[in-house]
Design a protein around this nucleic acid. Structure first.
Lengths: 196, 196
DNA sequence: AAATTAATCTTGACACTGTAAAGATATAAT
DNA sequence: ATTATATCTTTACAGTGTCAAGATTAATTT
């Protein structure tokens, strides 16, 4: 049983998951298409039936990780009051925690031009980086309730995003002597940030 | 005149500068040791007399860029009152502007473990990432004047750093629809951030 | 000044990489 | 059953990082 068949059957998905496995194991530097193919027990050129090139596989992997990321952000505010500032804090904390728990993913996700962002609340936001879109919509719902102008809300979105993104960047840097207390500190900092 | 001599004479520095030139031209993806060697009109293996491997050249290049970065931060606060909050804002703005003017450098500088950071005001800070050390010391000088505790100051440093670093990250992402108004917005956001 | 040592550069080689072309095999459609 | 399509393999090539051996020059010692 389990003989090696000529056709893999589920190679595309296998390549994506094996790619992420390899990424977490060896880091992006030692990542290679041929290694991914080897993990899937398939020839060097097999991936080219599913992806135009290496870059396309990496993009698919990024989308895969982005979905996990988005799911976690959604879970973080599940059941919360969508018009309460505290919900923004919850999401912000979840944003940072995702990368503290998966430090490799930070560099990986934000190391190319695949992040699209539009602050307007119309169809232009459709192609947005999903985690950003979540942040954006939540800010609009909360801050509209508090009578903020659209322009003020947009500023707040950028400000919040910059804060959590910056904290995630710092938290995932090696050598930063702020370990352990991150979880508490982050809550303090974000809370303080959002209260004005 | 200008015959090709066997010994280059200044190869190490030439490799660093050619490396940065190549980085700005083709991006980190298409960067290669052999291309750098070619720019310096030298054989493939010549760089190995000056750098243990490719990674070491990249580190030297990062140090080179970090020096430019540090110099700009220093210039931004030259002659300013070192105990005024506005000086922090000036430096923060300069932090972001450096990467708006050199978008390639953001990914490049922060894409490896070379960033060391220690919040304590003693010798442990000696090995710190110089731009961070500048931010840190400025915060201590300003906030001490205002009677902040060391612990509060450390929080403020992380908070400020996260904000400017996050804004730099966002500003250097392609596709962000916030162009042009960055310079004004940034001043607003940073000012607002530092005033509490 | 001559001889020796050390630093710097070249040549040639190897294993590994991304990718393309041509062909093999299995699946789907007719 | 035949054809067409999708998927995979084999082979090949140019580009890469890196090493070892040797060539050339500069620095040091005598």
């Amino acid at each position: 049983m389990n003989e090696k068949k000529y056709h893999h059957g589920n190679l595309k998905q296998c390549l994506i998951e094996a790619g992420i496995e390899l990424l977490n194991g060896e880091g992006e530097t030692h990542f290679s298409l041929r290694k991914v193919a080897a993990i899937c027990a398939v020839s060097n050129a097999a991936p080219y039936s599913h992806f135009k090139n290496k870059e396309e596989l990496l993009e698919a992997m990024k989308n895969y990780v982005t979905e996990q990321f988005t799911e976690q952000l959604n879970n973080a505010i599940k059941g919360e009051n969508m018009e309460q500032p505290n919900t923004i804090i919850k999401m912000g904390k979840s944003y940072i925690m995702f990368f503290i728990n998966h430090p490799q993913y930070f560099q990986f996700l934000f190391s190319q031009p695949c992040i699209r962002v539009n602050l307007n609340m119309n169809d232009e936001g459709k192609g947005n980086f999903p985690p950003f879109e979540l942040l954006k919509e939540l800010h609009f719902r909360v801050l509209k309730k508090y009578g903020f102008s659209d322009e003020k809300i947009k500023d707040a979105i950028i400000s919040s995003w910059a804060t959590v993104h910056g904290l995630a960047a710092i938290a995932t840097m090696e050598g930063v002597i702020y370990d352990g207390i991150w979880e508490n500190k982050i809550e303090d900092i974000i809370s303080n940030k959002e209260e004005n």
